[in-house]
Write a protein that binds this DNA or RNA. Sequence first.
DNA 1: TCCTCGTTTGAGTATTTGTTCAAATGTTAA
DNA 2: TTAACATTTGAACAAATACTCAAACGAGGA
Lengths: 121, 121
Amino acid sequence: MPTAAPFTDQCQGRTLHPERIGRAEAAALPPAEVARLAQLFKAMGDPSRVRILRALGSGEMCVCDLAALIGVTESAISHQLRLLRTLRLVANRREGPVLYYRLTDDHVGRLMALALEYLRE
Amino acid sequence: MPTAAPFTDQCQGRTLHPERIGRAEAAALPPAEVARLAQLFKAMGDPSRVRILRALGSGEMCVCDLAALIGVTESAISHQLRLLRTLRLVANRREGPVLYYRLTDDHVGRLMALALEYLRE
DNA sequence: TCCTCGTTTGAGTATTTGTTCAAATGTTAA
DNA sequence: TTAACATTTGAACAAATACTCAAACGAGGA
């Protein structure tokens, strides 16, 4: 005779606390928002990009200024800026041959400020 | 006689706008803070971890609940939770053999809320 | 003591990522 | 038109990542 319930309620593939899972599912974000949220945070989750965004917080700059500031190739900066531009975190303005980049709005700054406040406490 | 100034003010390795670079340098974060900031955002920059953190926002959960919710192996969840635990974004509580994970505090929730508000507008 | 189950750990792996180099683009001035 | 310069693009590559599988660990209960 099998002792108690041998294979029911086991963790593998089954749910230990259905009500908790239900609660979490109810609060869960739609997949598209999860993706965009992760994309946004990932974009801010690189030291070079943090420095770029921080620098742009103090005013617009061109690619080679940023390269000099961060200490990498202009090509590297350009690649990073393309990513940030695709996500609309930065925008640019052309003046002759030089492109001046700026933060699109203050959302990024506010996120960084909140995060800084967090890790400083 | 060379036309104008042939090689001064060129971008490669030199600074196009020293005053902008100086301004940015003055506002720059110390390297340690840049690193921690990037680490924090990177930790939040993955769809699975976004979902985990969001789920924990509605109450504590054990590993296999999270695995069932997210749809990956418990091993995968455990690996992610270790990352989040190392960065003190989550903490756990043991009850018999099961570990209940929770958000360490509401900072993560506030960051996610702000980011959501951002990308929803 | 065994055995079970939840969790963790480590190896292995396919994918992504951040950078540099070299070459192409595009704008301006001679 | 030609030359110069800021920027972009694409290839290449090393390093980091996120997952699965298999095995180990640890806490209870028979």
